[in-house]
Simulated assay, not measured.
Amino acid sequence: MSIRTSLWIAAGLAMAPAIALGLARFAYALLLPSMRTDLAWSYTDAGAMNTANALGYLVGALIASQAATRFGAKRAFLAGLLLTAATLLASGLTASFTWLIILRVIAGITGAVAFVIGAAFTVAAVPRNKPASIPLAMGVYLGGGGLGIVISALVVPPLLALAGWRGGWIILGAVSFLGAVVALPALRRIQAPAPRPQGDGQKGWSLRFLLPVVVSYGLFGAGYIAYMTFIVAYLRSRGLDAFDISVFWACLGTASLIAAFLWSPLLARFKAGWGLVAALGIVTTGALLPVVFDGKTAAFFSAWLFGGSFLAVVAAVTSFAGKAVKPHALTAVIAALTVSFGLGQCIGPVLSGAISDGPHGVQTGLLLSAGILLIGAIVAIFQREPTLN
């Protein structure tokens, strides 16, 4: 399979992060201010919604490999996309806190299954004799998350004025169903990662070797999701209006799309954990800017820096896994990394939300987010380069 074909497949499979991340998770930040006002939520309540989604994502990561084996990787991938779309649609049909929590959990489970399998498909589509192309393929795949952010920035804010947050959820569900259809041609073309060779008793990867990346990825999960959950509410509290928020969110999504092509050659050159260190360093800077400096300029710079690097963290981790593990272990190791990421995401929103309900407000929760991201960058320094895959 040529590199061009691999990238075409990655672009189609990118509907998984577009739906699971861009629409099902990140777009919640756009709906949150309206939901908090209408439903009288505290920041802790608001954070609990994304913690529920993260808990589901953790469960989905744990079962993704088994689901791919039992039902077939392609069926599990498509089912994950369709079920995620259905939960978004259903979220616009209820105001019950309990039902919204349940739907967020389900969206997390199904989204994680699709994301993990899609990431394994993307790495497997790259010829084994061209590992330097893995970061580019993963950048294209993860660019789907940025596409989802841009789409939500275009469709959600106008609907809030016309149909409220319920209309926002319904349109997100409809767009997600369309995205599942777009993924079908690539899904038909891809081949599942090769199974473990007969007589090979090794699982193909070592948790001990990958431990710095695993821990760093978990810290990233805790830090970045707090920013993505509360940054819109924070900016609204600092005087930015609906138009400013739309521009901010569109900048963040556009930056993550462009970054797929800017980061890929850099990640191909970085050794050991230094690609992860670089990406996390810029994410941390982006998270700090709107807290340290006031005004629209700082907010928009934050959007470009954070948006241009947070998906690069995922690309750095997945690309490193592609170099460090055997082909048959890709789905399992990506699932294991996503479990760590999911654990961080479970902790981040509710911890940041609880702190944001304190006397110093959401600004303190965002500072905590940046601190956790910085620790993740420090941990990644200790990751060694794999000697042989």
Rank of each mutant, 00 (worst) to 15 (best):
W263I: 03
A303C: 01
A287T: 07
A299Y: 06
Y224M: 08
L266Y: 12
I231A: 08
A312V: 11
I282L: 14
S246P: 02
A321W: 12
A260W: 11
I231C: 03
S237D: 15
G221Y: 14
F320L: 15
A272C: 01
A324T: 05
G322K: 06
V317K: 13
P265N: 04
W274R: 14
A312P: 03
A299M: 06
A272I: 08
R236M: 14
S264D: 01
T297A: 11
F248Q: 02
I231V: 12
A279M: 08
T229E: 00
V292Q: 14
G281I: 11
G273R: 06
A316I: 11
S246V: 11
R238V: 12
S309M: 05
I231H: 07
L276W: 03
I225P: 01
D294W: 14
C251Y: 12
K326R: 14
F300I: 10
L289C: 02
S256E: 01
A312T: 10
A329F: 08
F310A: 02
C251W: 14
A272E: 10
L280S: 06
D294A: 10
A255M: 04
R238E: 14
F293I: 13
T229D: 07
I225G: 08
T285V: 15
W249F: 13
V292E: 13
L262S: 10
S246I: 12
R238P: 08
L257N: 12
S246G: 15
W304E: 07
Y224W: 01
A321N: 15
A259R: 01
I282R: 09
S302K: 06
S256V: 02
L235S: 04
V313Y: 01
L235D: 08
I225K: 05
A260G: 15
V232N: 00
F243G: 14
F310I: 07
L252R: 04
P265L: 02
G221W: 13
G286A: 02
L311D: 00
G223P: 03
G286V: 00
A268M: 01
G221S: 12
R238G: 12
I282D: 02
L276Y: 05
V325D: 10
A299T: 04
S264L: 07
S264V: 09
A222G: 10
C251T: 09
W274F: 15
L276Q: 13
A242D: 15
F243L: 15
S302H: 02
F300Q: 00
M228L: 10
S246W: 06
A312W: 08
A242P: 13
F306M: 05
S256M: 11
G286D: 02
F230T: 01
A268Y: 00
A329W: 00
F320R: 14
G307S: 07
T254F: 12
K326I: 11
F248G: 00
L305C: 06
F261M: 02
S302P: 05
L262W: 13
A272G: 04
G307T: 01
L267A: 01
F306W: 07
L280G: 09
V314D: 06
L252Q: 03
P327C: 05
L267R: 03
T297S: 08
A303V: 00
L276N: 09
A226F: 11
L311K: 05
A299H: 04
A242N: 14
D241A: 04
G322S: 08
L252C: 02
T229I: 06
G223R: 09
F310Y: 09
L289E: 08
G308M: 04
Y234W: 00
A272Q: 00
W263E: 11
F293R: 09
V232Q: 09
H328Y: 15
L289D: 09
G253W: 02
G281T: 10
